[in-house]
Design a protein around this nucleic acid. Sequence first.
DNA 1: TTTT
DNA 2: TTTT
Lengths: 168, 168, 168, 168
Amino acid sequence: MLNRVILIGRLTKDPELRYTPAGVAVAQFTLAVDRPFSREQSSEREADFIPIVVWRQLAETCANYLRKGRLAAVEGRMQVRNYENNEGRRVYVTEVVADNVRFLESPNREGGASQGRDEFAGNSGNSGGGGYGGSSRSSGPRNSGNNNQDPFADDGKPIDISDDDLPF
Amino acid sequence: MLNRVILIGRLTKDPELRYTPAGVAVAQFTLAVDRPFSREQSSEREADFIPIVVWRQLAETCANYLRKGRLAAVEGRMQVRNYENNEGRRVYVTEVVADNVRFLESPNREGGASQGRDEFAGNSGNSGGGGYGGSSRSSGPRNSGNNNQDPFADDGKPIDISDDDLPF
Amino acid sequence: MLNRVILIGRLTKDPELRYTPAGVAVAQFTLAVDRPFSREQSSEREADFIPIVVWRQLAETCANYLRKGRLAAVEGRMQVRNYENNEGRRVYVTEVVADNVRFLESPNREGGASQGRDEFAGNSGNSGGGGYGGSSRSSGPRNSGNNNQDPFADDGKPIDISDDDLPF
Amino acid sequence: MLNRVILIGRLTKDPELRYTPAGVAVAQFTLAVDRPFSREQSSEREADFIPIVVWRQLAETCANYLRKGRLAAVEGRMQVRNYENNEGRRVYVTEVVADNVRFLESPNREGGASQGRDEFAGNSGNSGGGGYGGSSRSSGPRNSGNNNQDPFADDGKPIDISDDDLPF
DNA sequence: TTTT
DNA sequence: TTTT
């Protein structure tokens, strides 16, 4: 066993934060990772769209600081799940279970020239966004007290993630 | 863009070697990569089964030296392809396109104590298995002159790989 | 053999661009890579300072686009050189020979809100900074015609890099 | 911050196991990592010799199962320490601090055909060599009760590692 | 279903 | 559909 993936790309959407029945946080998002420039094919730029899963503290940090379009570095391992869909067919899902996510762009401050300290977050005690400084109306962490961020708001829809999927 | 994967695992089957219409070699195999030991779940050991694709020289080297059950290290990038299946549904396929494969076990020689030099093979000019020494009836490279290894033997079946998939 | 390093950090100085006697471009710079936050030690943030070497086209691209303080991702392999210093003592130098460098911050345009397309550059045919768009007086590529950038200006000082160090 | 190294190579010597004054286990060894084959230089094969450091449980597992000449995969981060030597000169030491080590060869059993299960060991609770099966006089774990393995036997010599070096 |  |  050795299974290590490192990706840099941009979020195609805001992360989705859920909670397992046992109350464990999970966030999911997709990273668009540009392929190396293939000179012959004059066609437009191509990318791989890679699903990322993060758990616990790191999930909440990602949900708070990452947004659609943002550049991020992700470190983790490849995981292939499979399940039977409602037509009785086996479906295979490949994702990267991240244990380290690095935010490569600080949200632009109000009228600002941007570029503060870049942030990282890991899942091994050193998470929490460590010293994230500038927060502002438009670009700071969301999710404090506004009800539409309530993770249980999605309870109506089935979640296909159980605690058994917990990788640690 | 940055997209790097490194895996160590065992082949679930012998590699399959094909050729594109333009004559470019492609090999495919699946690597069983043991997951990190999860102590709670007393259940049996788990693994991720990860599809690997290799092209050109490296494809032929892999087809010659790798076999079911063999341990290998694979370096490459994650790629997500998608196509429409015969029911008009879009299917997503995630694979690792390898540019470096390392053979971590030399095939056991006849009565041998095993463990010769370990082999690697890259796709950047340094491939070819560079100096692979011991070959023997049962464990050396196959594919020389025996017709059932003829890559065109599979021509009857459609190949879902076109030259457009060439990653370089 | 398998030897892969991936780093994200900031340049401690502008890159130094030299040329070997045979005319091959080499650039060197140091990356400050923050260590994972160690909670106990309340002391200030620590970093590892890691020497990077890049060759050929990629060297020139780095010299053109990277600057002190800029954030970059570097992919390559660890290399340990050793030489005898002028006191007859053997000195060991560890560096990362990069084959892929990604510029994680576009230089801020004049009064600009920054954040254009992020750039990457590889050493395998896909280099050249591929379509870098915005250049401006203060932040675009330097090195065109201004003499103090002449790589041979440093000829007086000995260069401890020979063509034998060429990794490809 | 992102700092990831993955190496495969052979130990140049048996690992050295020490203990810090506070009783924390540290093991050190050097990995010979073959460089990619450079076709032009007909000279002999070259390698990089890379110092590895491992802490705690993983240190003891390495000391027990790794030996000179054995093939191993190492995952960790690059670290650059520096200290003043006895001539008042600043010396820089680059090492890989490993958090995952994989034993790629099981020790050959007595008359055995070799190739048992391959072993790994991590530093995050899943260490301990998890289910290592076959042990024998000549190739099993050492260090049980034989005095010359006593870690404090080296106490006379100064150790240049303090608890401050603890990376977690 | 995709990002800049 | 999976390897040891």
